[in-house]
Design a protein around this nucleic acid. Structure first.
Length: 566
RNA sequence: GCGCUUGUAGCUCAGCAGGAUAGAGCGACCGCCUCCUAAGCGGUAGGUCAUCGGUUCGAUUCCGAUCAAGCGCACCA
């Protein structure tokens, strides 16, 4: 039910063609305060046409409006304010949410079209940092939003599992490593070897030659090199999976860089056939000056391929395999140029679907105002942050609700939820400086605040059930008080919020919405006793249940769990 | 130098295709648990919306310039 149309139609009837319906719809706005109604129509645009003062037009129109869908229509200065019929609205919204349950807000924007999402993509033998968290968590939420709007997301973890660093890693392992060490603590040990390699090769440049030789052997399929590579990869993946399990993120594909090794020749051939390759400073490039971009470097002077060559192969592979309607890359803002180049080269190849490729950039995480860097020792390990958060959640539970059952599970849900929510709460593009206290905060505008609001709602519903409250045969959900109205208006806007979030690829829209809904519900909770035997009991319970449903669904769309008690 | 992104209260940020007195959280100060979880609710203090122009009946919102910050700018990914 589109309530905005009531307003459009009511105005169109009175205006009799003086303004197009479409124009009326665009002019209608939501007042900042509910005291000024649910919708408002400024009459300034009419002033020119009618050659009258806006104030006069407003009161003339307001007098003629058909009132049946509204509690009140009044002119205030140059505005006409519309107050929806609260009883009708609340009854229809609550009824709809209770019937649809978690499917409330579902809509068909995607016609089940495939949308591969390139996300997370950590490097083998390096730890997962806060930077990867952003890509993982944003991608995961976008995938859920896409599914909610009837797209078919395919989450691809494009692992950094190939490259000259594996030559270094093998050399370092052969010199200083051991199987037991790696098995005990794969990521840290592999990283340690890698770091040591970089230290020692300053004084022993011959190490680099050895490393190059090992990578060459790996490329040529030497059994020892390949089996070490496979082993490093699988050990790394195992420890990555532990973190993904903590976060509750699943992938549909782990095809990383290595997967495309045998698919790059074709790209080069294609570029040659279209006569796009040029030699420049000894390298093979595609000139993109007509796009106002730097040339795309396809092959290095030594003939080796580069990042963009691999991504071209991946883009083409994804198009063929998934026949996608959109292809997303959740990758940091600093790679914007790379994706522009990628799309431009595809365009040059005549692949019109390059327009369906969207880079979803996000801002940088810094520490102490400086960019994170493995080499400079500025790393924030995601695993440690998650563990800290869970531990703090445990303390919090001991303090606030020591009798809670299944404390451990709830602590995980709350701790991890706080971290994920913190990352998604603000616009993707905002940079932020990492601050542990800020990330694991449980009060104010946080994930736990939303979870707590949900838990309170669930608590009321449990109590109601226990006392068989509100079981009226012909329930009437007509609420009309001010506190519930704010909640109801938010509940009613859920679909529009989802639409906006998915169109902008912006999970923060959902996070902000969940905070607003939680806040309005907490206000309601503080002002209104729900479990009171009177005529509106079932209506109030319907409101509480609807809030619980929508809060839980909002959190789910963010990849955050909603405990029933906390 | 060029390109991308950002600039709103002490701090972190909202402000949805321009519209009625610019909002919230944190921090500070002050209230509220004989009542459904106080991880909560309420109040006070705090802003020339970076600056200057332009478009418009109307600009925090759109356009341009300037200033400041971050990130990129061919043989890493």
């Amino acid at each position: 039910m589109n309530y905005r149309n009531f307003v459009v139609n009511a105005l169109a009837d009175v205006l009799e063609g003086q303004l197009e319906k479409d124009t009326i719809n665009k002019t209608i706005e939501k007042p900042k305060s509910l005291a000024l109604g649910d919708y408002a129509f400024p009459t300034f645009p009419l002033a020119k046409i009618l050659k009258k003062a806006p104030q006069i037009i407003a009161s003339e129109i307001a007098a003629k409006i058909d009132h049946k869908e509204f509690d009140k229509v009044q002119a205030v200065g140059p505005y006409i304010n519309f107050f929806l019929n609260k009883k009708k609205y609340s009854d229809s919204i609550l009824r709809q949410i209770l019937v649809e349950g978690s499917a409330y807000g579902n809509q068909n924007l995607g016609d089940n079209g495939n949308v591969p999402i390139d996300m997370s993509s950590p490097n083998i033998a390096k730890p997962i940092s806060m930077g990867h968290l952003r890509s993982t968590v944003i991608g995961n939420s976008i995938a859920k939003l896409l599914a909610k709007t009837n797209y078919h997301p395919i989450k691809i973890n494009h692992l950094g599992d190939w490259g000259t660093q594996f030559g270094k890693l093998i050399e370092a392992y052969k010199l200083w490593g051991s199987e037991e060490e790696v098995k005990a603590d794969p990521i840290n040990k592999l990283l340690e070897y890698y770091v040591r390699f970089h230290k020692e090769d300053v004084e022993h440049p011959e190490l680099d030659d050895e490393a190059r030789a090992w990578f060459k052997r790996l490329e040529d399929g030497d059994p020892e090199a390949v089996s070490l590579w496979k082993w490093f990869r699988s050990e790394s993946l195992k420890s990555f999976m532990k973190i993904y399990n903590k976060l509750g993120v699943k992938f549909d594909s782990f095809n990383g860089e290595a997967f495309y090794n045998d698919k790059m020749d074709e790209v080069v051939t294609l570029l040659e056939q279209k006569d796009l390759l040029q030699e420049s400073r000894g390298a093979q490039i595609v000139d993109l000056s007509k796009y106002n971009l730097n040339p795309a470097l396809i092959k290095k002077t030594d003939g080796a391929t580069l990042y963009i060559t691999r991504d071209l192969a991946a883009a083409i592979y994804r198009k063929r395999t998934y026949s996608f309607v959109q292809s997303l890359y959740v990758v940091g803002n600093e790679q914007t140029n790379h994706f522009k180049q990628l799309k431009a080269v595809l365009k040059e190849l005549g692949e019109e679907w390059s327009d369906d490729i969207h880079h979803i950039p996000f801002g940088l995480i810094t520490q102490g105002g400086k960019k994170l860097s493995t080499r400079a020792g500025r790393v924030i390990l995601l695993d440690e942050v998650l563990d800290d958060a869970v531990q703090l959640a445990e303390q919090q539970i001991e303090e606030k609700n020591p009798d809670l059952k299944d404390k451990e599970t709830v602590a995980k849900q709350v701790g991890v939820g706080a971290v994920i929510f913190h990352d998604l709460k603000n616009e993707r593009m905002n940079n932020f400086d990492f601050n542990l206290e800020e990330v694991v905060r449980f009060e104010g505008e946080t994930g736990p605040y939303v979870q707590y609001s949900h838990a309170r709602a669930m608590s009321i519903l449990r109590k109601a059930k226990a006392q068989n409250a509100g079981e009226v045969p012909e329930p009437d959900y007509q609420l009309s008080d001010e506190e519930s109205w704010e909640v109801l208006r938010l509940l009613g806007s859920f679909s529009a919020i989802i639409k906006r979030a998915v169109e902008e690829y912006e999970p923060s829209v959902i996070a902000k919405y969940s905070l607003h809904l939680a806040k309005s519900f907490n206000k309601y909770y503080a002002h209104t006793k729900v479990l009171k035997e009177d005529a509106q009991l079932s209506a109030r319970l319907a409101l509480v249940e609807s809030v619980a449903i929508v809060l839980k669904e909002s959190l789910r769309l963010l990849g955050v769990q909603a405990p029933e008690e906390m």
